[in-house]
Each structure stands twice: as structure tokens, then as C-alpha cells.
Simulated assay, not measured.
Amino acid sequence: MLRWHRPLMLSSGLMALLAVALLVPFVVDERTLDGMPLWAKPLKFAVSVAVYSFTWAWLLSLQRRDRRWGRWAGTVLAVAGVAEVAVIVFQAARGHRSHFNASSPLDAALFGAMGLMIIALMLANIVAAVAVLLDRQADRPTTWAVRLGLVISTLGLAGGGLMLGPRPGQSLAGGIIGAHTVGLPDGGPGLPLLGWSTAGGDLRVGHFVGMHALQLLPLVPLALAALSRRMPVLAPERVRLGLTLTAGGGYAAVFALTVWQALRGQPLIQPDAVTLAAAAAVLVAVLAGAALSLRPGPRRADAGDVTKITASAATAGAVR
């Protein structure tokens, strides 16, 4: 029986309700901040933390052995996530930036507090990941999907550190320390709702892709198991394991590619020839991995074959 982590479930439910509530100011408040609707960032973070908390509640429920330190790590994840969103909502209500803002003592203190929350979140993420990884799941495809999702999501979370630290021309006197845009100041043209820069590199892309490996990769073996009922080629565990590992490797490559693209100051929607070539190489590798996974395995002897082999051996013995 699954034992859902209560603080994480509470965090997920609270953030889901907050996201619904934030739809009202998002629609009716016409104010903007850094070129985006004022309430877009709180809405995005509320949705993200709701999904993140629910996923961790599910992952921790998979433990066959209840580890108190793992559940404590889950509680830290829940508290840190809710606290970070609370600061973001508070700053939006004031019409102020929540991240990279040191324009006043209060803004600097809140951004510093968020930094501590992120550190706590990352450490708790690692501890909770170890707790989950110590247990083998129902089958090998699911086990490896969870493992890869945890590793990539931890790297995605750590990727947020690339946004910290002063950029050229920034100082405490200027009130802004750090940025998510590479090559340009924050606040330029961006994708609708997401806000990812369409004029320069944006480190939020890799951060988003990496963190959500935790939600997406475990869905792969579940989908393959469901499809195997209608597609016999997917029935062998060997095939589903190969496809799961291929999906995990492809996802990790996409994560690395988005970070690399952003660090080169290149917008996500305007890849150059080098980026396109790298993406094509990733696609070819994924297709090759899928093809290898789908190859027929060695034929196993069925009951009839065993009977024939036994009879042949008996006959040969009688002749001798």
C-alpha cells in the first residue's frame, strides 16, 4: 500500500489552489514587470511547485522500507517550495522583482532568503533521491526511469546556479545581481507566458527541461507497458528497458544542448547551424538506440523444443 508523503501532498494541493487563484490577477491586472505580465511568474512557479511536490510525494511512496531521513528530506522539499513561491507572490504584489533584486534592504534580504531556500531544496532533493534510489522498483524499466529522472532533475536544479553572480556592468549599487538572459539584459522580448528570451540565450530553458525530467521520464515505462498489450514487440522487458534507457539518454542530451545553447547567447527558437547539427546527432542517436532496442532477442526454447531435445538425447544414448 502506498504511503503518500503528507507535507508534499499538502504543498501540491496548496500550490494548485494558489495557481487557480492567481489566474484572476493574471487576467485582470494589466501591469507588467520586465516585459512580462506581473503575475505570470507567480503563476508559473505555483504550477511548477504543485507538480514537483506531487511527483516527490509519489516517488517517496515507492519506498519499500520507510526511511525517516528520506521523509524529512521530503518535508524540507515541501516547505522550501512553498516558502519560495510565497516570496515570489509577495514581491509581485509589491510590483518588485523577486530574483536578482538588491535594490533595497528588504529586496536584498528576500532574495538572500530565497537563495537559502534553493540551497535547502537542492540538498533535500539529493537526500530524497538517495532514499528512493536505494529501493529497486517493480521492474527494471521503471527502476532506471526513476534513476535517470532523479539524476537529470538534480542537475537541472543545480543549473539554476548559472544565473547567480554579477554580470558585466552589474553591481550592488545598481540593485541587480545575476540574470537568466545571456548576452542581453533581462526584460527583453520573450515567449508568451514562459518569458524565455527570443533575442538572447536564456538559462531558464535548461533549468526547466532538467527539473521536469523527474515528471516525464517515469511516464516512459508506464506508457510502454500499456502499449505492450496491443504491440507484442514491446512485451519483453529487455525491449522496454532499452527504449527507456534510450529515452533517458536522449532527454539528458536535450538538457545539455539547451544549456549549451543558452550559454552561447543563442535564443531557443533561433538555433544556428552548429546547434541544429548537434540536435540532428542527438536525434540519430535516439533513433539508433530505439532500433537496437527493438531488435529480436535470442529465441528461447519453448516446452515443445525442450521435449524434442530431451527425446533426441535419449535416442542418441540408446543407439550408443
Rank of each mutant, 00 (worst) to 15 (best):
F26E: 06
V319P: 01
L164T: 07
A113V: 13
L276I: 14
L245A: 15
A262R: 00
A145S: 08
P25C: 14
V306E: 13
D66Y: 04
A213D: 04
V79A: 15
A225F: 07
L17C: 15
R229V: 13
V76L: 04
I119K: 11
S171I: 14
G165K: 01
S197Y: 05
Q261D: 12
R97K: 14
R320S: 12
G174W: 07
G115P: 02
G81M: 03
L227I: 11
N125Y: 11
L292F: 11
S104L: 11
S48H: 06
Q63T: 07
L155Q: 03
Q266A: 09
I118T: 15
Y52F: 09
V49I: 14
G74C: 15
H99A: 11
A57Q: 04
R71L: 13
A301R: 11
G183V: 09
L23N: 06
A311L: 07
L184F: 04
W144K: 10
R238V: 11
D272G: 14
P298W: 01
R3Q: 05
P25A: 10
G160V: 06
L8G: 13
A313T: 10
T142K: 05
L234M: 12
G190M: 05
A108V: 13
F208W: 02
T55R: 01
I88Y: 01
P192L: 05
L62M: 13
V87D: 06
V282W: 02
T181N: 03
M9S: 12
S197N: 09
R320T: 03
S61K: 14
L123Q: 02
A179W: 00
S98W: 00
L38C: 03
A247H: 06
T246A: 14
W56Q: 08
R295C: 08
A311W: 00
F45R: 00
L38P: 01
P7K: 07
G149T: 05
A225M: 04
V233C: 13
G160K: 10
G81P: 05
M1L: 07
A145E: 02
F111Y: 14
A21K: 05
V151Q: 03
A173Y: 00
H212N: 12
L222I: 04
M36K: 02
A129S: 07
P185K: 05
A16P: 03
R147T: 07
Q170H: 09
L43C: 08
T307M: 05
G297E: 10
V182T: 06
A108D: 10
G242H: 04
D139S: 03
L77V: 10
V209D: 00
L14P: 12
I269R: 13
S293R: 14
S61I: 11
D135K: 13
V151T: 03
